[in-house]
Design a protein around this nucleic acid. Structure first.
Lengths: 261, 261
DNA sequence: CGACACCTTGAAGAGGTTCAAGAAATGTGG
DNA sequence: CCACATTTCTTGAACCTCTTCAAGGTGTCG
């Protein structure tokens, strides 16, 4: 069975919203008993620190599929920790060209681009219905002056994003289409696995065009490359359902080992 | 006349080194009277804060052209503010492939990649003799808990790097060779101009191959594209000396305006 | 001055794009 | 629940950009 990206299928249905769903105070919020804590918050906190950490989250917010969490040009106020759902971030040229800069899933933090100029420089679009924890950045800064492990954690999150982008630059700068798609699939499935999902099956939340934009390829090339992988017996593809049959083969494609051929 | 990248031609020659140049304590260090302060440190500090800021820099270090400031895999200890000189950072695959992820000049901070895993994930190579301020990261964290503007500054530096990399991803993912090289030249000259150099002349500190690696092109393509720009009368090129004759033309190449055919 | 690194240019070839058509899935309204 | 419109995906064929391979030129440094 192919699992979805959403983690919280065990969610405790918050009583059928008597208030409009966007009301920031409608939902009781607490990191301290969130099952995603180990993904988006520092670990090894004592209970006192844990209580303080709860203060970073101002509210939760639901984002419908296809709508934006924030847009290029909007005032930057908060970072967002993804609770459920799946996002893409993309930047745009004036001339309409745009580039998907990343896909984000539960437990990942989004909005770091906005810090430097107090305005967001990319769009964050929900690719499925999503829920995020809203974390006002001044509150994060305030708290991380007092809780050392939070400070360190914030720095690590930003550094991790920088390192991730280095990897994407390597991919875009020096890999061929098959290598790019193989690396993409391995990365996705590895992140899903870290969230308790299958190592071999996944449902793509994005279109071929969005994959192509991320990988610097046209959608036709993505489609053809999928077909090639299928021919070679490396994966099974039915629309957005992908089953990886031969993980090693994918690894070999990304990192052509010296002893091969 | 074509200027070099180095900013400190007005440097007060530190007396002919009676100690080995690498000795971390040989040189008196102070941000408060550094002419690069406005580039690498927060602005609008009161004098008390300025004194505190001086504590961030543990020492200076000279790096000879062609040698590394740090290497992939090395323990991460410090960030480095470039005082003089010019660097490239590059990541490498196991299979020998590598990718230049950026070129850094005076006033820019380098080493952010190391924070997340306590180890550097890329190499920083001096492309000309350079000098950096060594800023132990735990000291930065300590101080930024107390000096709010430093905290904010550190966050902005990291966010700026993330946004810069978004731009590179856009370039690598969706631009053609001419667009890439035009964008590259405009970016370089703009950063040099911010440091008091010419808007139209520059000396490349890197080889065609390094430019190519950064732009996701082969060195031959870089060379051919330079030649094309020369033919079109947009730039003059004599080896690494570049004079931009028509900045608008370069801008039009990067951002094909709708009204231009 | 000679060795070496770097750069330029040409010609052939490969990989990816573009254009086009049709198929499959998805969503919408009656 | 079905018919229809729309979006998404696949595949083919021609084309184009960039790469590869090769050779020669230029500059630099011991």
């Amino acid at each position: 069975m192919i699992q979805t990206v959403s983690i919280c299928n065990t969610s405790k249905h918050e009583s059928p919203a008597p208030m409009p769903p966007m009301n920031p105070h409608a939902i009781k919020v607490a990191c301290s008993n969130c099952n995603l804590r180990e993904l988006c918050m520092p670990m090894g906190l004592n209970s006192d620190e844990l209580d303080r950490i709860d203060e970073v989250v101002a509210a939760r917010r639901k984002i419908k599929r296809g709508t934006t969490l924030f847009r290029n040009g909007e005032k930057f106020v908060s970072l967002y920790a993804i609770r459920t759902g799946f996002f893409k971030t993309c930047v745009a040229c004036e001339d309409g060209r745009d580039q998907v800069t990343g896909f984000q899933m539960a437990g990942e933090v989004i909005g770091l681009d906005g810090i430097v100029n107090d305005h967001h420089t990319c769009d964050a679009v929900a690719l499925e219905d999503a829920e995020v924890c809203v974390m006002p950045f001044d509150r994060i800064e305030e708290l991380s002056r007092e809780v050392t492990s939070l400070q360190r954690h914030v720095h690590k999150i930003m550094s991790r994003e920088i390192v991730r982008e280095h990897g994407v630059m390597l991919l875009l700068g020096s890999m061929r289409a098959e290598e790019r798609l193989a690396a993409f699939l391995l990365n996705l499935v590895q992140r899903l696995h870290a969230r308790g999902f299958s190592q071999s099956e996944l449902v793509l939340r994005m279109t071929r065009e969005e994959i192509g934009s991320y990988l610097g390829l046209k959608l036709e090339t993505v489609s053809r490359t999928f077909s090639k992988f299928v021919e070679d017996g490396i994966v099974e593809v039915r629309q957005r359902h992908v089953r990886i049959i031969n993980t090693e083969a994918l690894r070999d494609i990304v990192n052509p080992s010296p002893n091969a051929v």
